[in-house]
C-alpha cells in the first residue's frame, strides 16, 4: 500500500461554495453562515465538497466530489464507524 505522508491535524475541507456566491474572497473553508444557506435538493446540481478520505489500497487522500463529474455517483452518509446497522 502506498503510504502518503499525513499529519495529525489537517483542515477538514468540506462544502465548496461556488465562487459566484462567495461573500469572502477565498474559496476554501466557507463560514457556517455560508454553509447554512446551501441545501442539496433533488433536480438541482449537487453541492461540491472536498474531504479527507481513507481508500483501500491507496491510503489517505483527499477526495473532491466534482472529480467524479460525468459519472453516476452514490453518496452514502452513515452515523458512525463501529456502529451496529
Amino acid at each position: 500500500m502506498t503510504q502518503l505522508q499525513d499529519g495529525c491535524v489537517k483542515p477538514v475541507r468540506g462544502p465548496l461554495v461556488p465562487t459566484s456566491q462567495l461573500t469572502t474572497p477565498q474559496a476554501e473553508a466557507p463560514s457556517i453562515q455560508e454553509v447554512s444557506k446551501m441545501t442539496a435538493r433533488v433536480g438541482q446540481e449537487a453541492i461540491d465538497f472536498e474531504a479527507n478520505a481513507f481508500i483501500q489500497g491507496v491510503g489517505f487522500q483527499p477526495v473532491k466530489l466534482s472529480d467524479y463529474k460525468g459519472k453516476w455517483i452514490v453518496l452514502c452518509f452513515y452515523p458512525g464507524d463501529f456502529t451496529f446497522v
Partner: peptide
C-alpha cells in the same frame, strides 16, 4: 473511498 466529514458541514448541506 471512505470520507471524513469531521464537523458535519457536508452533512449539513445535504
Amino acid at each position: 473511498p471512505m470520507l471524513s466529514d469531521a464537523g458535519g458541514k457536508i452533512g449539513m448541506v445535504y
